[in-house]
Write a protein that binds this DNA or RNA. Structure first.
Length: 861
RNA sequence: GGGCGCUUAGCUCAGUUGGUUAGAGCGCUUCCCUUACAAGGAAGAAGUCGGGGGUUCGAAUCCCUCAGCGCCCACCA
């Protein structure tokens, strides 16, 4: 083995070997209880970003551990066709060749998208492989696969016949750039400083008029009414009168509607039913006409009269100028308001009256909320349930039709002759009227419609397949909080309704990876870090371990390259620890399982006890999805206890060829590799091959070390070693400077095993005995033990006095604190007995130490 | 306008039902190239846990309040 760890070499070919051996298939543990995670499908044309890296590392840690625990573990990979996003990408590619999709036509454009997918769709799956994620590629799915598409059509048809899907003309969110409707959750609201424009609408009869205020002046071109609150005394007399809309010269009524807030603006609102949701409702209540003034690209249409042809933003300026020229513009004032933007392209969206398909959500919401309230489905951390409930409670019908070409085309056909609509799985041969002139609906479904079926459509549903029976419901869903509303809530709604069963019991929500500056990683800000770049520099294992240690349960975490570097250094440390073990054990001499020594010596007992404690803790933490705590615990155990203490203690015995120590070293290192394997699969696999050389660690059994009590006196030993090292450091004595030290162990807590270890770890050979009265010595006290370091000819007595004084002062403060606590009758009375007992024991301990130190201090003069 | 969250060492963050002297990584200081590892080892400095008030024998932890920051939701034009 090389003396240094080289991630690129280690990570070169394990993945294909695992894959070839079928390690990632649930059949590996046929007969074991099923365990399943479906991947949140990334955009098929996208590439892996840091968020994926975190999300998927969590899933891989879960699935690899379950696999090692004997579950028939399935992590099902897949990709999403990502309707609008993908279409935009392909349109951009076409634009480079000077083409538009319209020129190409629907059929040929879709061909182009499939070609694009074939070319670039492999990128993301290659990246998933490079990260070492153990997905079962034999079960890979794509949301536009034949099977998944059939499921989509079936769901659409069934929901339509249950009246849960309907077609209707509503105000929806329209993106003029993408020229499609989008759903409520695809709109991002941002506060912007705009202006409130006050306009005067003159009465058609008599003098005077009414003043209205708007932030979108151009919409007045579509005004068909003015509304006031019915109880507003300012306007009560005007209700029923008519006013003339300037510029378009339309006569419209003043109506009374309680949706109007009398305290806002002038208390009178212009009503544009075709371009505002509230206005649409008001218009419907009062029979006002809806005049659409925008075309699909956000340009004023013929209804806008002389403003036709102007983009909406240009029209806003032009309308204001024209109003001012007519004397109808009263004033403009700055106005902060919230503006909706398209989540995909960030264009300002328009409320737009249009005929679309909707899912009626009311009947789905109840059961979906109940399942979480009952605890059938739980969010981890729990606080996300509030977000979920809040969103569910305010849910409006879901607009599922998109005016794009890439996606699942809506399975509805219209008869050219009689106008009848047929909704069916496949194109009907003829209309009921006998006509064969049928046209399929032009629209496609929202991408999230198919993603919403992912937990079961990927397993073969609606067919009753073996996979569906075994792996549905899934075992856990892992995702970021950003798509709770897009995806999680919809899977729960649709899953419950369609399969009659919750899609998963646990929803693990993690934070977002942010850029080093704390902001969102984004291409436009240029602060993004490509995980593959990090992998090339530090290795996938280092990135994975860093993400696992950093990922607090519910907090966003700034990505820091240094943490990856630290993880890589840990890899090097582990590499060398194994190299050390191999130098004594030779290659392939450690059993894959068991092999724990029957009658371990004290050092072995200690390390085995600690191993068991660490593995118990890691198990508990991983069961609770507390990855950061789990791997920090493991990291500290490995480095702080095994490498820093145990390996040092084992050296002397290994040199003496002690077989029991070899066995212990072997199993401890082996179990350490196993415990780390879910986080750093490549490195642990490589090292496993050297240490064990049997099968794959990826297919090995999760460790269950035997339990032992920690040997008495070990902590005392550790304290004395550290104390002597501190003594050396404080007095500028090198590690090998000879010291004359007597260990006084009146209670005999340390037996005799420690003697050679003091030599190994603290560089001195202790003499047993008692403190010599009157001698010049420094002491390290631990419990009833004392290490008495002779000062003869060694150090400056003055420095030692200062050192002692400092220690005594510190100790006195502690003693005073506990004494005060114990003197408090309330504390002794009310605190639990074990807490009080602990406090007493501590106080005694400190007092004894203090007595020894003060005695020594007085001897030093 | 509602809701949620954050504020702990120079930096980035842990700290689970209140209970040892509040932890880690990085950075910093001193010493050590000891035959697994200098990508390392040993020792150390460093925090009035955002401010104020309260509950309690006891508060970083629970409650109230103020300040600063961030996120989500929302049809006040």
């Amino acid at each position: 083995m090389d003396p240094a760890y080289d991630p690129q070499r280690v990570e070169a070919d394990w993945y294909s070997r695992w894959e070839k051996a079928g390690v990632f298939r649930p059949e590996l543990n046929a007969g074991g209880p099923p365990f399943c995670i479906v991947i949140p499908p990334p955009n098929v044309t996208g590439s892996l970003h840091m968020g994926h890296a975190l999300d998927q590392t969590i899933q891989d840690v879960i699935i690899r551990r379950k696999r090692m625990q004997g579950f028939a573990a399935l992590w099902l990979p897949g990709t999403d066709h990502a309707g609008i996003a993908t279409q935009i990408v392909v349109e951009r590619e076409l634009a480079k060749e000077g083409m538009t999709r319209e020129e190409l036509g629907r059929e040929r454009f879709i061909e182009q998208v499939w070609l694009w997918k074939a070319r670039s769709g492999g990128a993301i799956t290659q990246q998933i492989r490079r990260m070492g994620f153990s997905t079962d590629w034999t079960r890979e799915r794509f949301t536009m696969d034949e099977g998944l598409s059939a499921a989509v059509r079936k769901v659409f048809v069934d929901l339509y016949h249950e009246d849960l899907i309907y077609r209707g003309t509503r105000i929806i969110n329209w993106c003029p750039r993408d020229r499609t409707a989008i759903s409520d959750v695809e709109v991002e609201h941002e506060d912007e400083l705009g202006e409130l424009v006050h306009i005067r609408y003159p009465f058609t009869e008599g003098s005077g008029g009414i003043e209205v205020a708007t932030s979108r002046a151009e919409t007045m071109l579509g005004d068909t009414g003015v509304a006031v609150h019915p109880d507003d005394p300012r306007y009560r007399d005007m209700i029923g009168k008519t006013v003339r809309v300037p510029l378009v010269d339309r006569e419209v009524p003043i109506v009374a509607d309680s949706a109007v807030d009398p305290t806002f603006g002038t208390g009178a609102v212009k009503v544009t039913p075709a371009h505002d949701p509230t206005d649409f409702e008001i218009g419907r209540r009062h029979g006002l006409e809806a005049v659409v003034i925008l075309d699909e690209g956000g340009v004023i249409n013929a209804n806008g009269g002389r403003f036709a042809g102007l983009d909406r933003m240009d029209a806003r300026r032009a309308v204001k100028e024209a109003l001012a020229a007519e004397g109808a513009l009263i004033k403009t004032e700055p106005h902060e308001h919230s503006v909706g933007h398209c989540e995909r392209c960030h264009t300002v969206v328009e409320p737009y009256l249009s005929e679309q398909w909707f899912v009626r959500v009311a009947p789905l919401v109840g059961p979906a909320m109940e399942a979480v309230k009952r605890g059938d489905i739980r969010f981890i951390p729990e606080r996300w349930e509030k977000t979920y409930f809040h969103w569910m409670e305010n849910l409006r019908d879901w607009n599922i039709s998109r005016q794009i070409w890439w996606g699942h085309r809506i399975p509805a056909w219209y008869c050219d002759d009689c106008g009848e609509m047929s909704v069916a799985m496949e194109a009907p041969a003829a209309c009921r009227c006998g006509s064969k002139s049928l046209r399929q609906d032009e629209d496609v479904l929202d991408t999230w419609f198919s993603s919403g079926l992912f937990p079961f459509s990927t397993l073969g549903w609606p067919e009753d397949t073996a996979d569906y029976r075994a792996f549905y419901p899934n075992s856990v869903l892992v995702t970021g909080y950003d798509i709770i509303s897009f995806w999680v809530a919809r899977m729960i709604q649709l899953g419950l309704h369609l399969t009659g069963c919750k899609p998963f019991p646990d929803v693990v929500i993690h934070g977002m990876i942010r850029a080093e500056d704390g902001r969102k990683m984004s291409k436009s800000l240029g602060n993004g870090v490509d995980p593959l770049d990090v992998v090339r520099e530090y290795g996938a294992d280092a990135l994975r371990l860093a993400l696992m240690q950093a990922a607090a349960p519910n907090q966003d975490v700034p990505f820091q390259t240094e943490s990856v570097d630290a993880a890589r250094r840990f890899g090097n440390k582990l590499w060398n620890a194994i190299r050390f073990a191999l130098s004594h054990l030779g290659e392939g001499n450690v059993p894959a399982n068991g092999g724990y020594p029957d009658r371990p010596g004290p050092e072995a007992t200690w390390v085995l006890a600690r191993l068991r404690a660490a593995s118990d803790e890691v198990d508990a933490l991983l069961d609770d999805y507390r990855f950061s705590d789990a791997f920090s615990t493991l990291y500290n155990f490995a480095w702080g206890e095994v490498f820093d203490w145990y390996l040092e203690m084992a050296k002397a015995q290994l040199r003496a060829g002690d077989e029991a120590t070899k066995a212990t070293l072997g199993v401890v290192m082996r179990d350490l590799l196993k415990l780390f394997h879910p986080a750093i699969p490549y490195l642990t696999e490589e090292l496993w091959q050297h240490l064990v050389g049997d099968g794959f660690i990826a297919a090995s059994r999760w460790p269950t070390p035997p339990s032992h009590d920690e040997p008495a006196g070990f902590e005392n030993f550790r304290e004395i070693v550290s104390g002597v090292r501190r003594f050396r450091a404080e007095h500028g004595l090198g590690p090998r400077h000879p010291l004359d030290i007597v260990i006084a162990d009146p209670a005999g807590v340390m037996e005799s095993w420690w003697a050679p270890q003091f030599k190994a770890l603290a560089g001195f050979e202790p003499r047993a005995g008692a403190a010599t009265e009157g001698a010049n010595y420094s002491q390290v006290v631990s419990g009833s033990l004392q290490a008495l370091i002779s000062l003869d000819g060694l150090v400056d007595i003055g420095a030692e006095r200062l050192r002692l004084d400092r220690e005594i002062t510190e100790l006195e403060a502690l003693v005073a604190r506990t004494a005060a606590k114990l003197a408090n009758a309330q504390f002794v009375e009310r605190a639990p007995a074990d807490i009080v007992a602990k406090e007493r024991a501590r106080a005694e301990d400190w007092l004894a130490t203090l007595a020894k130190l003060t005695a020594q201090r007085s001897e030093l003069g």
